[in-house]
Amino acid sequence: MTLTPGSTVRIKTMSPLGHIRTPHYLRGKTGVVERVLGPFKNPEQLAYMVPAPTRTLYRVRFEMGHIWPNAEAPQDTLDAEIYEHWIDQNAP
């Protein structure tokens, strides 16, 4: 996956039961890559002490008005770190 700052991305809606680091409130939401943080071991594997290949980690910026329809200031933003396997490659 080659994403760069400014790339528009949508977060997957999957909900596998286990230790995951993608918050529920961002699933299915669309944001923009703020920066590329580089490769980090996958915490979903680290949590169980099984081999943990790296995944590219991104900081993705979302608009509050997109996440929360009743946001007090819709232009405010929310940044979160998202691993590459949570980015929906089939989304526009």
Binding site: G18, H19, P43, E44, L46, A47, Y48, M49
Partner: peptide, 9 residues
């Protein structure tokens, strides 16, 4: 022996 993710899990 474990990771911070294992603690959180």
């Amino acid at each position: 022996h474990f990771t911070v993710d294992g603690l959180r899990r």
